[in-house]
Amino acid sequence: MQWQDEAIIIGVKRHGETSVIAELMTRERGRHLGIVRSGRSRSMQPVLQPGNRVEVVWRARLDEHLGEFKLEPLQLRAAKLMETATAVYGVQAMGALLRLLPERDPHPHLFEALDIILDAMDDPSDAGELFVRFELAVLNDLGFGLDLSECAATGTRSDLVYVSPKSGRAVSRDAGAPYADRMLALPDFLGEGASRTADRDGMAAAFRLTGHFLSRHVYEPRGMTQSTARDGFVQAALKALSRAPDDKTPQGSGIIPPAA
């Protein structure tokens, strides 16, 4: 058995004296593990860093075997990802999100999103927005997508400011007013047709929103706890946004639409 694909490294662990087991997010075959012989060598260590994009060839006698990877570097961006706290935590947090998905289950849109977000990690505003949309996309692929397109009570598509913590559906200002203390806030930048990037308060609300549904539908039922890397990313992103100017114009924040 053999195949070739493009992939992003999301994790590495030692295997024997000189080898490693690499965990990759491939374009066509989802999250996939394989042995890299001599992966601890001086020449391979710079390649086997989370966030790097590689060309991979996988070989095994049978499809269900772990198999071996042969890797060629395409984009070595790990060094750049070490320059900011948002990037350091972000690459780890997205790797943890991808581990919630079944191994070898194709999610090509998540590969594309991961590749773009990693290139945007040096800008905390863009990184925060894209990370939240990545979480929404993962929730959607797990079968727990949020419906932020219309009010759950009235069907209206305007003035949506809340999200039901139970159903994950948007609620309009008037319909949700009697239950406002029990609702989650819907940040403006996640609404349909939004034209501005998030400020610090909006980003904090977005992190609370996705964190709530990840805990409710994924972590708690599996007996898991939320990734500590996510906590680090959230703190770093909010700290950076508190120092950012308020008049920043949007830059490519629509690569992952709000999950429906």
Score class of each variant (00 low, 15 high):
Q2C: 04
A120Q: 10
L139A: 00
R157V: 11
R31T: 12
D5K: 08
I35Q: 08
D181T: 15
E150W: 14
G128F: 03
E17T: 08
S195K: 15
T228D: 13
D231W: 14
T26Q: 03
P102M: 00
I117F: 04
R133M: 03
L130N: 05
L110A: 00
F189D: 04
G254T: 03
H65I: 11
A237Q: 05
F233E: 04
G232M: 13
I10F: 02
L190K: 01
R230T: 09
A198Y: 08
A153V: 12
L114D: 03
A175Q: 06
A194M: 09
D188E: 15
G67F: 10
A7Y: 01
S215M: 15
G168E: 06
R230K: 12
V132Q: 09
M224D: 06
M1W: 13
E220W: 02
R59I: 02
A87L: 06
A87M: 03
A177L: 07
E55F: 13
M121C: 08
L148F: 02
P106F: 00
D231P: 09
E103A: 09
D201Y: 15
T197I: 15
L101W: 00
E150L: 13
M121K: 03
A205H: 10
Q226T: 05
R99H: 06
V47S: 08
W3F: 05
G202H: 15
V132E: 11
S41M: 07
G145W: 07
R14F: 10
L136M: 07
L241E: 10
R31S: 12
E112A: 04
R208K: 14
Q2G: 05
R243K: 10
I116L: 11
P245M: 06
S19H: 11
G90Y: 05
L160W: 02
L114T: 04
V218D: 00
I256F: 11
S164F: 04
